[in-house]
Design a protein around this nucleic acid. Structure first.
Ligand SMILES: [Mn+2]
Ligand SMILES: [Mn+2]
Ligand SMILES: [Mn+2]
Ligand SMILES: [Mn+2]
Lengths: 218, 218
DNA sequence: ATAAATATTTAGACAAGTCTAAAAAATGTT
DNA sequence: AACATTTTTTAGACTTGTCTAAATATTTAT
């Protein structure tokens, strides 16, 4: 069994791991969890003793197979709870994260199995992120940042990178939600802003926004 | 804000408090929480500093108004989650307690408000216990232990005192569930066992069982 | 009213998780 | 290659919640 704190570290490492990045740095973990690097070193050592991460002093850390599975399961729980909150309890997509941060630590395999069933075995959470299956496998969805689309390319908005409440509320205000069709009408080279068409109207989008919206090209 | 441990202590004191008993003893709390009396003394002191219990050394502890409200809210959450698990996720009544012990600590007023709504504002949990309202008020239900009924008295089974998994499974096996009509046919003075009628058939019930079943007289 | 038994508190210790400050290692720059 | 900067680790401390063993207070029994 892993403590809430240990679970949070495993999840942080999981999220910081990408195809390229192998060894996750102490500082990166500290920043993600809003703790100090010295605390990270301590915890990493404990997780290493428990064989869920492999660690070489000064050269970062990575999840073992068993660690990856545990982390994926926490992500699975987080995202299933997010679906529950939005679909069943009518939370909006910007309100679910903090509650899911707590719910993801509830220990009960039956609970998650039944919840999954109750929700109709969803494959994505309210932010468009994929929900890992029981074995921790994660289906990657074909997607690109809006900022990488060229003029006259188009697609469907299927996810966000930043899922902070502020950003999501901003999107709501602009009428940008998952499933909406977006077409790039203009790209402004000067400040990398875009003019897009969405909901049958033109809209100017800053670089920062375009860098946080995922599009499935059509 | 209160830690999970602090919440568990408040809830334990809440449950140990009855109309008669004013000062709850250190040992009683220790037993309920499966800790040592010395740990209880430490925690009581902390809760006293936070003004949620009043405490006189050597003479037990009792909840203040603010402490009672906090405790009632935890009980409210526990019982609402139990309803959720049974009604929506198809847990049986003997499986819900341990999961609810965890879920009761999730902090989110909106979550509980919406859950309450989603469940249709239930007034009782799966074990027949009343669910406190938002202000911590608890409606007491008119009920008596089966063991206090006299020969030929009858009523409806509306709750259990012991809600351990073992006892509940035992009741399931005997076909004794909430809502069932029960009539006392005989009382055996020798061992205080009862012969009752339930589901159109006779059944012998030991004193121990009769002491843990609540009946609403009809 | 004493003595014995029981309940409660105190003293001191420990594990988990965190922090600050200092030391050591790795990396970047001239 | 030597020095400066950044990153990481170590050392030592602190908080929370727990425990054991010993001391003290209360209650019960004689
Ligand atoms: Mn989230
Ligand atoms: Mn999400
Ligand atoms: Mn319960
Ligand atoms: Mn219950």
């Amino acid at each position: 069994m892993f403590s809430q704190s240990e679970e949070n570290y495993l999840k942080a490492i999981f999220h910081l791991t990408t195809a390229e990045k192998k060894g996750i740095s102490t500082n990166a973990i500290a920043e993600k969890l809003a703790t100090k690097p010295s605390s990270v070193t301590d915890m990493i050592r404990k997780l290493s003793d428990k064989k869920v991460v492999s660690y070489k002093k000064y050269y970062g850390v990575s999840l073992t197979n068993s660690g990856r599975k545990i982390a994926a399961n926490i992500v699975r729980k987080h995202r299933l709870w997010e679906v529950f909150l939005v679909e069943k309890l009518h939370f909006s997509w910007d309100e679910v994260h903090d509650v899911a941060e707590q719910l993801e630590h509830i220990q009960s395999p039956k609970l998650i199995q039944q919840l999954d069933h109750f929700l109709g075995f969803p494959t994505q959470d309210p932010h468009g992120d994929p929900i890992p299956d029981q074995d921790g496998n994660l289906k990657t969805i074909e997607k690109r940042l809006l900022s990488t689309l060229l003029k006259n390319e188009a697609g469907v908005c299927i996810g966000v990178d930043d899922s902070s409440s502020e950003f999501l509320k901003f999107l709501d205000k602009r009428g940008i939600t998952l499933g909406k069709h977006i077409k790039v009408l203009e790209k402004e080279a000067f400040d990398d802003s875009l003019i897009i068409e969405i909901n049958q109207q033109k809209m100017t989008i800053s670089k920062k926004i375009a860098n946080n919206l995922y599009i499935q090209k059509s």
